[in-house]
Design a protein around this nucleic acid. Structure first.
Lengths: 142, 142
DNA sequence: TAAGATTGAGGGATCAATCTTT
DNA sequence: AAAGATTGATCCCTCAATCTTA
């Protein structure tokens, strides 16, 4: 039980630190954290509003505002869905794509940089166990 | 480099999942996530506004509003600092203390529950490596 | 009717800049 | 100068209601 507290505490501190990196770097790249999260979901393909709201775990109306502001800033654009005239699909603009890939690269660089300073054994354990732990928690999100 | 992306991706998914647990449980305990973060910092001792703003990495003006709303809801209170008549110290009310300790217990329970389902070997690696990783990232926050 | 999207109201959270008091 | 509070602007979020197309 004492070990549990230590483990949970480490998990929370690690998560807080990662969020902090994400937050600070998004601001440095002139994106709000939510804009960065939104745009990361659009790298692979354009996504409809309803699906996007599900992926981001926010209300559709919240998403409308988020996309409005990002569109006003020229980061994303709405395009009509050719299959369904009710629907729109959100896509990255060229400028938005450059912004989010630059941002993503720097996040990756920053997160991997810190782990380099750990002992080799610890690093090896992390690389092995972290993906499984991430999957275990991620899947519990539904 | 490919391994870096996988590692950083796992770190981000894990962190997102932990944040999600924190978010959902704080709402279940009728706290906003920011109120929960604030109150967790007050468990050990009352803290002044300036120090608190530093600990939470937010502006003083943000903290003023945060404390105002939490105080209005009877979760924390402002008490004059006996050492300095300018300063105020923020402390938990009895009700706030119960709320935050209950919340904290459930976060710990929830975070440790999921890790139980992992293979023993993975669990062992995590318990060993996570505290060191957390420390490495945590310290880089300054 | 149901699905996709938007609008409006209201509460929170954030930052930047500006007082007031000590 | 330092601690604290305040103001104004923007962003984010939830909930309820509305509009349009299927």
């Amino acid at each position: 039980v004492e070990g549990d507290n230590q483990y949970a505490g480490a998990l929370i501190r690690l998560s807080t630190a990662v969020q902090s990196v994400f937050h600070d770097l998004s601001r440095e790249h002139d994106l709000t954290p939510q804009q960065a999260i939104l745009m990361c979901q659009l790298i692979e393909r354009p996504v409809g509003m309803a699906e996007l709201a599900m992926l981001l775990h926010i209300e559709k109306s919240t998403l409308t505002g988020l996309v409005d502001r990002a569109e006003r800033r020229g980061l994303v654009c709405r395009a009509p869905d050719p299959e369904d005239r009710r629907a729109v699909r959100v896509d990255l603009t060229p400028r938005g794509r450059k912004a989010v890939t630059d941002f993503q690269d720097e996040v990756t660089r920053t997160l991997t940089k810190h782990v380099e300073h750990l002992p080799a054994r610890t690093r090896q354990n992390l690389r092995g166990a972290l993906p499984q732990a991430a999957a275990a928690y991620w899947d519990s999100l539904g």
